[in-house]
Simulated assay, not measured.
Amino acid sequence: MTSRLSLAGLCCLVALAGALLLALWSLSLGVFPLSSAALGQVVTGNLSAIEAMVLYELRLPRTIAALLVGFALGMSGCLFQGLVRNPLVAPDIIGINAGAGLAAVALITTGTGLGMVPLAAMGGSLLTALMIYTLAWKAGIVGNRLVLVGVGINAILGALTSYLIIKFPVESVTPALVWAAGSLTMAQWPLLAWLAATLLVATPLTLILLRRLQLLQLGDDSARALGLVVERDRALLLLIGSCLAGAAVAVAGPIGFVALIAPHIARLLAGPLTTGVLLLSGLTGACLVMSAELIARHAMAPVTLPVGLITAATGAPLFLYLLHRENRKT
Rank of each mutant, 00 (worst) to 15 (best):
M1R: 11
L13D: 12
L22M: 02
S28A: 15
S48L: 01
M53L: 15
L55I: 07
L58G: 09
L67R: 03
L68G: 07
V69W: 15
M75R: 00
L79I: 03
F80N: 04
G82I: 02
L88T: 13
L88F: 14
V89A: 14
A103N: 15
G111C: 01
G111H: 08
M116R: 02
S125D: 09
L126P: 03
I132E: 04
T134E: 04
N144A: 15
G150C: 03
L157P: 05
G158A: 03
I166H: 10
K167D: 15
F168M: 14
P169M: 05
L184M: 00
L184K: 08
M186S: 12
A187V: 06
W189F: 08
W189D: 14
W194F: 15
A202L: 07
P204S: 07
L207P: 03
L210I: 03
R211K: 15
R212Q: 09
R212E: 09
L215Y: 14
D221N: 09
S222F: 09
A223N: 01
V229C: 14
V229E: 13
E231W: 13
R232L: 13
A235N: 01
L237Q: 00
C243D: 11
A247M: 04
H264L: 10
H264G: 13
L269E: 03
G271Q: 00
G271V: 01
T275N: 11
T275W: 13
L278W: 01
L283R: 01
C287L: 02
L288N: 08
A296D: 00
R297I: 04
P302Y: 07
L323R: 10
H324D: 12
N327E: 11
N327K: 13
N327V: 14
R328Y: 05
K329L: 13
